[in-house]
């Protein structure tokens, strides 16, 4: 019996360990491979890359050759910044308003605000395009900001509500009973305590906006081109090697951001809980 168990343990280690290694390999390898090909000397995205050069990065940073990409990047950053700011304002207010309410209406409002997370983004993107067009609005960056705010605000609501639920109500009660006004309590007690939660949510919302495809696909135009849509175009037509350089920059940015968020608000801890 002892021998059978050790055989089971060995097979367990082999199978589970093997599959886990496969999972890690599949997660990491494509990212490493893209980074390597972005430094290719050749004209195509062959692997292994031939030689080492920065030519595609130079082409990417060239203001005249890559004007369209630069405009898409600045549009994407602008939309992400505004939609996150509006999302933080409206979302944290809503979290404050709903977190302590047990009423049915509050629960319903909360599920409505979270529903963009499960609703297929394409359905909302198409609906927004039809709605804005049929009520007579012209496509503009403002409409993209509005659409992105809707699909990214759940991230802010979720982290803010989580921080609020960990807040000791005795702190608020003592502040209020000591004569502080509601606004003063909010400013000096509540906000400082939930700030990390709001910040983590804002970060996730910003990243989700930068990465958003379904809403931008329908609401962006040639004038208001967005980075993911432009990259999609670069992949669909002739495979433009500059896209490897764009990917390289985005991989570096994600890596740096991840480190910064880990040091400041402990992002991974927040995502696990």
């Amino acid at each position: 019996m002892g021998r059978r168990r050790s055989f089971a343990d060995i097979s367990y280690g082999l199978v589970i360990g093997g599959l886990a290694v496969l999972a890690l390999f599949i997660i990491v390898a494509p990212v490493v491979i893209v980074l390597m090909t972005s430094f290719t000397e050749g004209r195509s995205l062959k692997f292994p890359p031939t030689g080492f050069s920065l030519q595609w990065y130079e082409a990417l940073f060239d203001p005249s050759k890559s004007r369209q990409i630069h405009r898409a990047v600045s549009n994407s950053l602008e939309v992400a910044a505004y939609s996150t700011v509006f999302g933080v304002l409206l979302g944290s207010l809503a979290a404050l308003g709903l977190s302590r309410s047990r009423s049915k209406l509050a629960r319903a409002a909360d599920s409505l605000f979270m529903s963009p997370l499960v609703l297929p983004g394409l359905t909302f993107g198409l609906a927004a395009l039809m709605y804005f067009t049929l009520i007579g609005l012209r496509p503009s960056i403002h409409l993209i900001i509005a659409g992105h705010m809707i699909v990214t605000v759940p991230f802010i609501l979720r982290t803010t509500t989580a921080s609020l639920s960990q807040l000791d109500p005795a702190l608020l009660d003592s502040s209020l009973s000591l004569g502080a006004s509601w606004l003063y309590t909010l400013r000096r007690v509540t906000l400082p305590l939930i700030a990390p939660g709001i910040f983590a949510g804002a970060f996730l919302a910003f990243m989700a906006s930068i990465d958003n495809v379904p809403v931008s696909l329908f609401l962006s135009t040639a004038r208001t081109d967005m980075l993911p849509i432009r990259m999609w175009g670069m992949m669909e037509s002739t495979l433009d090697p500059r896209i490897a350089a764009v990917s390289g920059v985005l991989i570096a940015a994600a890596f740096l951001l991840m480190l910064i968020m880990e040091w400041t608000v402990g992002l991974t801890r927040r995502m696990r809980d």
């Binding site: 990212v31 090909t37 995205l45 992949m235 994600a254």
Partner: peptide, 12 residues
């Protein structure tokens, strides 16, 4: 990391 980058990686 953008979904588009992850998709592109698989093309390579």
């Amino acid at each position: 990391l953008s979904v588009v980058v992850r998709t592109f990686a698989w093309i390579v």
